[in-house]
């Protein structure tokens, strides 16, 4: 991926992410999250992960965010005035954010790499990387257990949702 293209995409991503946090209208905020997810998919695409990019758009931008938007519109949430959080919350948030920043810097500079050339990024990709076949093979061999456990988790969540909704109806 060319650095210029990455910088443009990263800028779009950050603007989108800032919009999610800073916009006061809930609908605009949710739409900003859609834009962020969309640019994330483009970044995946440029990292040779075509399948992940497509799934990102189909699942997150195309399905989950639609439900978010639905709920916001049905509840008819109005734009809030920016609430000033209590001092304790602000200190905790600042602490969490700096911890995260530290972790990112540590990750990028581990093993002698630098911020601009992190180790491992320049090595050529293995054959079939990011392709549907490559991903499917990993999913059904090395990560089979995690894959199956996730599907059980999802089934449990669906059953739970149905049970909770039914209880309210009767």
């Amino acid at each position: 991926m060319s650095p210029a293209l990455f910088l443009v995409l990263a800028a779009c991503l950050i603007v989108g992410a800032l919009g999610v946090v800073l916009l006061s209208s809930p609908v605009r905020s949710a739409l900003s999250l859609v834009v962020t997810l969309f640019f994330m998919a483009v970044v995946f695409l440029l990292l040779d992960a075509q399948l992940v990019a497509a799934l990102q758009v189909v699942v997150y931008a195309g399905a989950i965010m639609v439900l978010f938007l639905f709920v916001i519109m049905l509840l008819n949430l109005q734009a809030d005035p920016p609430a000033m959080a209590r001092l304790g919350v602000r200190v905790t948030a600042a602490f969490g954010a700096s911890l995260f920043l530290l972790a990112v810097v540590r990750f990028l500079t581990r093993g002698g790499g630098t911020m601009t050339d992190p180790r491992g990024m320049a090595t050529p990709l293995p054959e079939g990387f990011g392709s549907t076949q490559g991903l499917a093979e990993l999913l059904f061999t090395r990560f089979l257990f995690a894959f199956e456990i996730t599907s059980i988790l999802l089934v449990v969540a669906i059953i739970g949702a149905v049970v909770l909704a039914k209880k309210k109806l009767t």
Binding site: L31, V57, S131
Partner: peptide, 22 residues
């Protein structure tokens, strides 16, 4: 030329719903 062409078309069609909702 996309190796995941059919998923791409499906993704774009699923984005169409935003216009209607909005």
């Amino acid at each position: 030329p996309l190796s995941v062409g059919i998923l791409y078309v499906l993704a774009m069609l699923s984005l169409g719903v935003y216009g209607v909702v909005l």
